[in-house]
Amino acid sequence: MNTRSQKAAIEVRGERGASPDQPRWARWLRRALLCGVGLLFAASIPWYRGDAPPAKLLGLPDWVAVAILCYAAAAVLNSAAWLLTDIPEPVADDEARKS
């Protein structure tokens, strides 16, 4: 394997490019927020509803209102998750060698 593909493979494994500066709590909180987003997406689809005719909620059929509320909550959690996301900037090669 040539040097370039070695570097690519190492990068994929996360041995370079990951930032050690991000606190552990931030990483865990980000993961928890993303799990919350996944649950809200699952709750937005009315698979758990019975056959009862839809009532009104916030002026909309209730399953539509629930879906929109789920997406609104998911947008808030997702936005917070992005703010906690660490996207490191590349370090110049000579700096990397020093560290």
Binding site: E11, V37, F41, V64, A67, P90
Partner: peptide, 29 residues
């Protein structure tokens, strides 16, 4: 009304970017 799903799938795009952008960006830069 079932087209409310469109709001969900447009949001899912920004969610799925979590799996790509944080790793791709440093390499790309």
């Amino acid at each position: 009304f079932s087209w409310v799903m469109a709001t969900g799938f447009m949001l899912s795009i920004i969610v799925v970017f979590h799996a790509l952008a944080p790793k791709l960006r440093p390499i790309a830069a």
